[in-house]
Design a protein around this nucleic acid. Structure first.
Length: 208
DNA sequence: ATGACGATTTACT
DNA sequence: GTAAATCGTCATA
């Protein structure tokens, strides 16, 4: 049943991995239950030459150390003093490229997701399904992904992985591309179309 | 030791 | 649309 993506899947160009992650399923085990969603939006970060990447110019620090690991590891970072974001490391070891997971379409464990998200929101209004995982920090909240999972191997760890739900990647006609979100002053890298998302999917963070 | 800055989200005008 | 929240991280000293 569990068709976990293999090392070989991740050990490729980050742009290829990004496109092929669309439609696959991110699964998190929480208290013995599966909490999961289909990946509907991602962004590729191309490493040393990429002005917008944490590893631009070969920067290697305590925070971004996982990005230098072999493809298939998780790179989870903390930002804005309150949010976590999850990347999937692509390429080979010492090739610091990754794919940021920006949005999921919730599939399993919506009640747990809602609880995880609601408790961190002051609002008492019930959250709509499209508010559960429609952003990189939202999906980390919903699936309880934090720095404890940074550097973990998605090919091996028991509580977090990505499952293959489709043999072939989505047809190009169903994938939209555009500039990455939240990137400023990255010169030519600001506008490169490294954001990929499923057209007309209501769960993406910022619909076209 | 210090200061500036986020690969964001939420609430409010 | 604009702004506040909130603090780990990193570059500079």
């Amino acid at each position: 049943m569990v068709d976990r993506l293999s090392r070989a899947f991740y050990r490729r160009d980050a742009r290829i991995v990004a496109r092929q992650l669309l439609g696959q399923r991110l699964v998190r085990l929480i208290e013995g239950r599966r909490v999961s969603g289909v990946i509907v939006e991602v962004e590729a970060y191309l490493g040393i030459p990429d002005r917008a990447a944490h590893t631009y110019q070969g920067r290697r620090t305590a925070r971004n150390a996982s990005m230098w690991k072999d493809g298939g590891h998780a790179y989870v970072y903390f930002t804005y003093g309150m949010h976590h974001c999850m990347n999937v490391v692509a390429g080979e070891e010492n090739q610091p490229v990754a794919v940021l997971l920006r949005a999921l379409q919730p599939v399993e464990g919506l009640d747990i997701m809602r609880r995880n998200r609601q408790s961190k929101t002051t609002s008492s209004r019930p959250l709509r399904d499209t508010d559960l995982c429609s952003g990189p920090a939202k999906l980390c909240q919903a699936l309880r992904i934090d720095r404890l999972l940074d550097g973990e191997d998605l090919v091996l760890v028991p509580a977090l992985w990505i499952e293959r739900t489709r043999r072939r990647s989505h047809p190009t006609a169903l994938i939209a591309t555009g500039p990455r979100i939240g990137i400023a002053n990255a010169e030519s890298w600001t506008e490169k179309p490294l954001r990929y998302y499923l057209k007309n999917n209501p769960h993406v963070s910022r619909p076209r």
